[in-house]
Amino acid sequence: MKSLNTLIRIELFKIFKKGRTYIGFGAIFLIIIAIQAGIHFEGQNLFDFIMQQLDQNFQFEGNVINGYLITYLVLNTLWIHVPILVALVTGDLIAGEANSGTFRLLMTRPISRTKLLIAKFLAGWTYTVLLILFMILIGMGGGLLFFGKGDLMVFKDSINFFSASELPWRFFAAFAYGTLSMTVVAALAFMLSSFAENSIGPIIGTVAIIIGITIISTIGFSLMKPVNPWLFTTYLPGWQSFFEFELDKAKILRSVLVQVAYLVLFLGVTFYHFRKKDILS
């Protein structure tokens, strides 16, 4: 019986030998570069446009077109893209093996299905985390390098200004929260993957579920109001809570708990289903 460590390394080896794995990194790189180029060329116009509201009453001083604004814009843009990129790899973890017929090879070896699943999910999760770290590196690292530090101005219900000194922990918390959200997305794709024989279904399925529920929640707001607090999709943009001026700790805690509950549910279904599944592929 193999140690989990070996299995995880094998799964990571497989993930990073696959071309599709790099689509995510490539896409993130291109989007971030596009945002940075956009800010470089159009930042002042954007700033002036946003500032119209304050311009009436105030004069300002300070640099708000900076690396932190870039990072915030990157987060704002990518929280829609990253779930797709996460599903691209995690939706393939089980179904991809079924599709290529390699499950037969693996499962006739003395290997525990539970361990294999744990290894696969942890490897998929590692990919997810690397994707987010890559986002931080290129988005925040590149942003700070090219645009420097400064205070962050965030438009929510109100206009919030955050001092440069408090931004590292806010972004850290936002990224940590985002990682949890993406772990839930990964678990959803993983669960769908355990029911499918090819990876297209789980990938499209994950994206469709997320976008579908989000659209229904938004459009049918009054109808969905009682249900929304119990949907995991409601909490996907929850990282924005860390850019409220006063942290709503109860709201954040609730977001985390609901997401953890979904994580447990998705993984539970996956393990229950896969352990007794007949390998027919």
Binding site: Q59, E61, G62, V64
Partner: peptide, 8 residues
């Protein structure tokens, strides 16, 4: 040092 607003 950071961003500051003054009334016009």
């Amino acid at each position: 040092e950071g961003f500051a607003l003054l009334p016009k």
